[in-house]
Nucleic acid binder design. Structure first.
Lengths: 152, 152
DNA sequence: CCTTGACTTTGAGCGCGCTCAAAGTTGTAC
DNA sequence: GTACAACTTTGAGCGCGCTCAAAGTCAAGG
């Protein structure tokens, strides 16, 4: 009977929405500090680990590159003195997130437009029957894809 | 002197915020139909091409996989009859975009929180001077990373 | 004792989306 | 005529972020 309570890698993976493979990988590349082991050598994760891993997951899910996460993790290990630098990383990432949100929102709007257009096309087909086979509109460009927000 | 007016690949790349390499690649993999050529064999893009390429760019920028874009492009070439299927693809992608926006917004909020926390840490350092070197808080877990929204 | 299953390590492999290198052609400028 | 720049094609290469295969260890159950 081996002790050291804490979460197994399997459990941890489930709790954090990632695979055990990924958890080991993150540890290998220094995103996670060497994890406590049970007597048999198996990893045992703490709540603090979970906290950190959730954070990692959140950063990855928002497209922070592994390299940047490594930089952040390394600073974190050096304690409060690196606060300013770490804050800078997070601020930059937050700005990047804002940029992504904007881009997604523009695309979302464009899609709303295009989807409405498809509904119209389907309507016309239903009315006109299977007659007019293609492109009864001006161009065969099916709609105004050109409704695109200006790049900054 | 060779004619066929239209945009060169270079110009098109600039206008659409991608590289010429990528434009050729998209054509190779069927995302773009074979483009008109000038007498010397160089590609000449039309405004309609630009329209479509902008759309492709927009979909890629919001993480639609190339495979899905290929599926969509293939349907598009078959004309209005595929409207319904194409609409489905766009609706699915729009839903995926909504999901991404939510995720990004959650991360954005988390970062606001963490950044504020770093400011506090920096404040304490400025006041306490270079004395207390590390971890004068409860744990060395620098803040409540656990403020994480519930996964659906 | 033997099987089962959950873990371990190491290094290799993979899917994606480009990105580039090499070698060739064409058109213009000097 | 020759240099240069801009394009062409083909196929290979690359960076990222996992993902997996292989071989081994250990503990519990039958």
């Amino acid at each position: 009977m081996v002790n050291y309570s804490g979460y197994t890698i399997r459990t941890m993976a489930e709790r954090c929405g990632m695979t055990a493979h990924t958890l080991r990988y993150y540890e290998r590349v220094g995103l996670i500090q060497p994890v406590n082991r049970a007597g048999n050598g198996h990893r045992r994760y703490t709540d603090a680990d979970e906290c950190w891993i959730h954070f990692l997951h959140c950063m990855r899910a928002t497209n922070m590159p592994i390299r940047e996460m490594q930089r952040y993790a390394a600073l974190r290990e050096q304690g409060d003195a690196t606060s300013l630098e770490r804050r800078k990383i997070l601020e930059d990432h937050q700005a990047e997130i804002a940029r992504q949100i904007e881009e997604l929102q523009r695309a979302h709007a464009l899609l709303t437009h295009k989807i409405a257009n498809y509904r119209k096309i389907e309507q016309r087909i239903r009315i006109g029957g299977p007659i007019l086979p293609e492109s009864e509109m001006a161009g065969n460009e099916d709609d105004c894809t050109c409704m695109l927000a200006p790049a900054s």
